[in-house]
Design a protein around this nucleic acid. Structure first.
Lengths: 109, 109
DNA sequence: GTAGTTGTCCTACAAAGTCGGAATTGGGTC
DNA sequence: GACCCAATTCCGACTTTGTAGGACAACTAC
């Protein structure tokens, strides 16, 4: 999407979830956190490709962490939201807040 | 997108703008209202195509209104958000509010 | 009728979202 | 150290959304 680069619907969900998880933000964990927090079922694939795309766009960075404590598992790719990502999130939030203004009643708010 | 049917980013912007414009919600008017309200430039095409798709999905309905008062112009297609549309909007808002909860500070809120 | 205005529609393409199987990595067990 | 198992990421194929602007239609006023 044009140079502007608005946050996609799902991208926003992931970005917000990543911020919340902080040091613990990696693929499958993000996936289950989304499900638990807003009751939305997402597939592994959608999470990973979206992560890839957001990294390309510079909204997140990632680094490999040496696998979790418990049993096996391949190394985790832990991600983190960049300042650009936070900015996109902030703008998106402001726009939404502006659009909702005055309509809260109709939207059950 | 599966049966669930989450609101796309742009769909949400349009739906909210349509609610605000009420009886005055038709293509070009919606376009300029979005631009004025959140400073986002959108093309005619994206508005109309998105309107078509949302009507197919039952989030809005439309009816033809016999052209505006003053000068010329072809008849307007005035749209209105359906209860299903309002519901989708409400759910989306709730999810976002939940995801933002506790992160407001980081998001300039 | 010819021109100017307002508004919608169409076509084509780019970007985002979705899914589940396949492959990879490391721990445990004997 | 050969196997099996759990945890995670990666891959490929496809559907839905988002974007853009030219073409076209309807109405007013001369």
């Amino acid at each position: 999407m044009g140079k502007e680069g608005y946050l996609g619907e799902f991208e926003q969900v992931l970005l917000l979830t990543i911020m919340r998880l902080d040091d613990d933000a990696y693929g499958v964990r993000i996936m289950s956190e989304v499900e638990e927090r807003i009751g939305r079922r997402v597939s592994r694939g959608s999470v990973y490709v979206t992560l890839d795309r957001m990294e390309e766009k510079g909204w997140i960075t990632s680094e490999t962490a040496p696998a979790g404590s418990g049993r096996g598992g391949r190394p985790r790719r832990v991600v983190r939201v960049t300042p650009e990502g936070v900015e996109a999130l902030t703008k998106s939030r402001e726009a939404l807040l502006t659009l909702w203004d005055g309509l809260e009643h109709a939207l059950g708010g």
